[in-house]
Amino acid sequence: MSAQASSPEITFHPNHSGGTKKIWRTFWLLSVLTIIELAIGLVIYNMHKGEHPNATLVLAFKGLVCILTLAKAYYIVSIFMHLGDEIRNLIMTIVVPLCLFIWFIIAFLWDGNSWLNLRNRYQGVPAKTEQVAPAATEKGAKD
């Protein structure tokens, strides 16, 4: 099937004859995504310069950066690491266990936020954080 001699665990040799065009395209894509991320980062920076940044808007921008990062991760894993070229079985055994991260992240951050609320409620909000404090206390009072 192929001139390459390698382990007989392998049933067929994937076709690697494609050119380097795809690789370069991915490179430019990643660069553009990074530049967009930086632009958003600078937008957030300038928003913070203002007296009262719109918290929802900041959060939305941060969420957008997270999504862009996931897109970058997808391209690195799929094209650079060639996972996209592997057969479905391998792709699934790599991707499915990573779903554990969802609950891992949710539960940890949730508890972190809960420590903040507890501390602010029972120890009082420290004076040096005037700007953030009202919002946090409100949130604490709600739950």
Binding site: A107, W110, D111, S114, W115, L118, D143
Partner: peptide, 9 residues
């Protein structure tokens, strides 16, 4: 001191 709501999950 785990958040009881989180604890329920």
């Amino acid at each position: 001191g785990l958040n009881p709501f989180l604890g329920a999950f």
